[in-house]
Nucleic acid binder design. Structure first.
Length: 437
RNA sequence: CGGGGCGUGGCGCAGUCUGGUAGCGCACCUGCUUUGGGAGCAGGAUGUCGGAGGUUCAAAUCCUCUCGCCCCGACCA
């Protein structure tokens, strides 16, 4: 993509309303614009990242055996009256009335809708287990939205719902999601740690929240130092095998949020304990028959008797993750995207837009990189070199390929790694090969 | 929802106390010069001062009401 043609409204100064770094950088880098409090439009650059995050989430859900569906944002109030949550949920739920005076709502979550679907379709233990997920916009009318997309009112969330015939099956479904979540966050270059959590308003008796570590995280977390070296992608997990050993391994190390941590009883010695800031990006729950029972989602067993389905639900804050990724990956100059979620892999910079030789060299690099399938943002505008460098650092693409008069004269291009800051002058061919690899 | 703050050109702000022709920096447009870390000079365009009502000869400025946004707290993917 040529920057001269791209819709990328950059801000040189920090907008007054943005306090935390990810919010500031997302606005400055032209990723989002606020529409109203806690509600944002996603501009081309931001949408690319959102789509990449979403796709990683999708791939890992699919890999675990979950199946994608798409449920509505607007839901009928009657379903929520069945579960009893219509009155329980409070002002956070955005209530709407349609032209026929029917009570509707903008869904803050989808337990009721999915349970109704499954209740009408599933009759027998033979139809189970099932795990259905969707990636859909939700709305929670937060009293005080803040932190940009990290705590908006409208947000994109992946939520999965598992249905099993018994508790053992439900635990296996839970374990699958535990594994899928660990893999999902690891693929984005994040260190995500499952922590035993309160089950809150969703209820149930088994729950973990996934906290990623970032200096600017909103809550304090404590964990065993061993977490920092853990590599969840090392193991190639067979989702059909017994996942209990895996579950035990990943929940045995100490990890606790502020509320759950007590220095006096902490089993990890102080020298082995890491204190850090965390951002919650996922939450998994097992809650048994909390919804299936009142809503009548039942299945027959082999002996002819009928039982309510055993359920769990599993959320990942997809839009929040974009903010969280920046909180975990930035410096004073701007964003530093992990490769897996970078909006473009390479920022190609022509330092002299008016110079025929530089233009020819940059155009050539652009077409070769694209032909090789690399995602390239091509800075082809006429601007001062300093401004171009500052823009590239702000955008945070993993690699910068710099074409300038000095290099062109010598037949070299400069490759810069955004994260390390390392620069290298290489013959043009070698530079391109480095970025294509 | 309790407490606090802010709405002035695209962005950041001054001007409000003490009423008197709406300003600055950046960005933007034109031209020339420049070109390896946010260039220089010259010229130019851009405002219902959040909105409504009131006081006054006169309101960005004073009064009343209202809308929006932000921060701290309580609450949450």
């Amino acid at each position: 993509m040529r920057l001269s043609q791209y819709f990328l409204p950059l801000l040189r100064e920090n907008p007054a309303e943005a306090q935390i770094v990810s919010h500031r950088l997302m606005l400055r880098a032209g990723m989002i614009r606020q529409s109203s409090a806690g509600i944002y439009s996603w501009l081309p650059l931001g949408l690319r990242v959102l789509a990449k995050v979403e796709q990683i989430v999708r791939e890992e859900q699919d890999r675990s055996g979950a199946q994608e569906i798409l449920m509505p944002t607007i839901q009928p109030a009657d379903l929520w009256r069945e579960s009893g949550r219509y009155d329980d949920y409070g002002a956070e739920m955005l209530r709407i009335r349609d032209r026929h005076e029917r009570d509707m709502l903008y869904g803050p979550t989808n337990e009721e809708v999915v349970t109704a679907i499954v209740r009408d379709a599933v009759r027998s233990y033979r139809d189970l287990p099932k795990n259905l997920y969707h990636i859909q916009w939700k709305f929670r009318d937060e009293v005080r939205p803040r932190f940009g997309v990290m705590r908006g009112r409208e947000f994109l969330m992946k939520d999965a719902y598992s249905f099993d015939i018994d508790q053992a099956g439900a635990k296996h479904s839970y374990n699958k999601m535990m594994v899928a979540y660990l893999r999902t966050f690891a693929r984005m270059g994040l260190k995500a740690i499952p922590m035993r959590a309160d089950t809150g308003p969703i209820g149930g008796d088994l729950s973990h929240e996934f906290q990623i570590l970032a200096d600017t995280g909103e809550s304090e977390v404590y964990c065993d130092k061993a977490w920092l070296d853990a590599d969840v992608l090392a193991a190639d997990v067979d989702y059909d095998s017994d996942l209990e050993p895996f579950y035990r391994e990943w929940t045995s190390r100490y990890a606790a949020t502020d509320e759950m941590h007590d220095a006096a009883t902490c089993p990890v010695p102080a020298t082995e304990l890491v204190t850090a800031r965390g951002i919650e990006v996922g939450h998994i729950f097992y809650f048994g028959a909390k919804y299936s029972k009142p809503m009548g989602a039942l299945a027959s067993l082999a002996d002819g008797s009928t039982v309510p389905l055993e359920m769990g639900s599993y959320g990942i804050g997809v839009s929040r993750l974009v903010g969280a990724l920046i909180e975990a990956n930035h410096d004073d100059s701007g964003i530093i995207w992990p490769e897996a979620v970078a909006p473009f892999r390479v920022g190609l910079v022509n330092l002299r837009a008016g110079d025929a030789k530089c233009v020819a060299a940059a155009d050539d690099a652009y077409s070769k990189l694209r032909a090789a399938g690399a995602e390239v943002l091509y800075e082809d505008r006429d601007d001062s070199p300093g401004a171009k460098f500052a823009t590239m650092d702000l955008l945070g693409l993993p690699w910068q390929l710099i074409v300038g008069p000095r290099g062109v004269a010598a037949g070299t291009l400069e490759v810069k790694n955004r994260r390390s800051g390392e620069r290298q002058n290489l013959p043009a061919e070698a530079a391109l090969n480095r970025l294509i690899a």
